[in-house]
């Protein structure tokens, strides 16, 4: 995949003007994860209501791909039910980024936000719903 394909207008736009960027003061769950190889960081703040994601924000630092993918992820899951969003996989993210052919080093940048999101869901289900969703945790750790 050529770089001109990677750094399309949409990625740069999400990098420089990220949607849902920031924090939620009364979030139900706050989870931060990082990629130790490159130092990219994503922190997710999520609020739930009636089994749905009522609000989600992210903040962090890192490359255009990691920050744009986090922002897009928040848009994808906003207002959706837990059942719906727990099925989101890596192809869904890569497709919305338009980056299905990223190399092994950079694919981690694209998937850090999904990993953080899955861990956040797992944490919410375990702590607030008394449900150990091992599958969700395994999926998160398999992303990279």
């Amino acid at each position: 995949m050529g770089t001109s394909d990677i750094y399309r207008e949409i990625i740069l736009d999400y990098y420089r003007n990220p949607r849902n960027y920031g924090k939620i003061d009364d979030a139900d769950v706050v989870i931060k994860d990082s990629n130790p190889l490159c130092g990219d960081e994503i922190e997710m703040h999520i609020k739930f209501k009636d089994g749905k994601i009522s609000d989600i924000k992210f903040n962090g630092k890192g490359c255009a791909i990691s920050q744009a993918s986090a922002s897009m992820l928040t848009e994808i899951v906003m207002k959706k039910s837990i059942d719906e969003v727990r099925k989101i996989g890596k192809n869904d993210i890569l497709e919305s980024l338009g980056l299905q052919n990223l190399g092994p080093a950079r694919i981690k940048c694209a998937l850090l936000s999904l990993k953080t999101f899955k861990l956040a869901l797992y944490s919410y289900l375990a702590n607030n719903m008394n449900k150990e969703d091992q599958e969700l945790k395994d999926e998160a750790s398999k992303l990279f």
């Binding site: 770089t3 990677i6 490359c63 791909i65 940048c109």
Partner: peptide, 14 residues
């Protein structure tokens, strides 16, 4: 500019 070094290295690699 505001290009993250990883993005820059990816472009240079090309």
């Amino acid at each position: 500019g505001d290009i993250h070094p990883h993005d820059l290295a990816t472009i240079l690699d090309e």
